[in-house]
């Protein structure tokens, strides 16, 4: 008799086969684009014959060259796009976490009503279609005609990132007992001091995960930035889009691999930090 369970072991017959095949298709669909980019970025040929007949790093070289010959292209240069991408992501990361730490504290410690209302408010950007966020912010920015600079991208990204950061901070906050905090206070720490000495250090896993989430989301953001970017304020994804709108350029593939690697490292870091303790969604 085979082991009974969600997925039976040996001897599951057609059931097991169907489940495994479908799951396999799912994995392939999820991973195919990344894998193919990775392989093809090492191809020496101009065509997409597969597997690549010859391997080389020529596309990586030309991607590097893109950074060197900044002035060659008429639009914003790739170096500038990368720098502004990083700037936006860093500002978004720091601001969102700074705002979410006290908020998470207030929501976890506060009355249920306060918590429910605020949670709803701060999940709103998640439910809101990205296109609409893009259009809404564009409408606002165009009507106000303020010179926002970097903030033109930072402000919409913040709204997008806050739900994720808040969730991570809150799940970390929930595991901190009120008594731990009160213990510090009973020993003579002021409430603020207890927050700094006790709450923030104990929230660290959530804060780290939040920081990384904020970075990943902002760094990869495409749709909202697609509406909001200007010639001066653009990001790497937009630069790549404008470059490849007509045809695929293998050097952008090399660039993509670079971005994929950054993302992978970050995902693995998050996975390590919150291993099994919090949910991602």
């Amino acid at each position: 008799m085979s082991r009974v369970g969600l997925l039976p072991g040996e001897g599951g017959g057609s059931y097991r086969l169907v489940v495994c095949v479908l799951a396999g298709i799912g994995i392939v669909i999820a991973a195919a684009p990344v894998v193919i980019i990775f392989i093809m970025s090492f191809s020496a040929a101009e065509t997409s014959s597969f597997p690549p007949s010859e391997l080389s790093l020529r596309w990586y070289e030309s991607a590097l060259a893109l950074f060197r010959s900044d002035e060659s292209s008429g639009s914003q240069a790739v170096g500038a796009a990368l720098i502004s991408s990083l700037q936006v992501a860093l500002v978004v990361m720091v601001l969102s976490v700074t705002a979410c730490i006290p908020l998470a504290y207030a929501l976890v410690r506060g009355r249920r009503r306060l918590r429910q209302g605020m949670e709803l408010l701060f999940t709103l950007p998640l439910v809101f279609p990205l296109v609409m966020l893009g259009i809404a912010f564009l409408l606002l920015a165009e009507s106000l005609r303020w010179e926002l600079g970097l903030w033109r991208l930072v402000i919409p990204h913040l709204a997008l990132v806050v739900p994720f950061v808040l969730r991570n901070c809150m799940s970390a906050m929930q595991s901190i007992s009120r008594e731990t905090e009160e213990a510090a206070i009973s020993l003579g720490a002021s409430p603020l001091r207890a927050g700094i000495d006790i709450v923030v250090p104990l929230m660290k896993p959530g804060i780290l995960a939040g920081l990384i989430f904020a970075f990943i989301i902002s760094f990869n953001e495409f749709t909202i930035t697609f509406f909001m970017y200007t010639i001066d304020q653009s990001t790497l994804p937009i630069w790549m889009y404008s470059r490849t709108v007509s045809s695929l350029d293998p050097s952008t593939l090399a660039l993509s691999v670079f971005i994929i690697l950054i993302d992978l490292v970050m995902i693995i870091a998050i996975d390590k930090i919150i291993a099994g303790r919090a949910s991602l969604f």
Partner: peptide
């Protein structure tokens, strides 16, 4: 991680993958 990837990764890059 593999399943998470499509959600995290830049949509642009993923569409490159499909086009390729």
């Amino acid at each position: 991680v593999v399943v998470l990837l499509p959600m995290i990764l830049n949509l642009l890059i993923q569409s490159y993958g499909w086009i390729l």
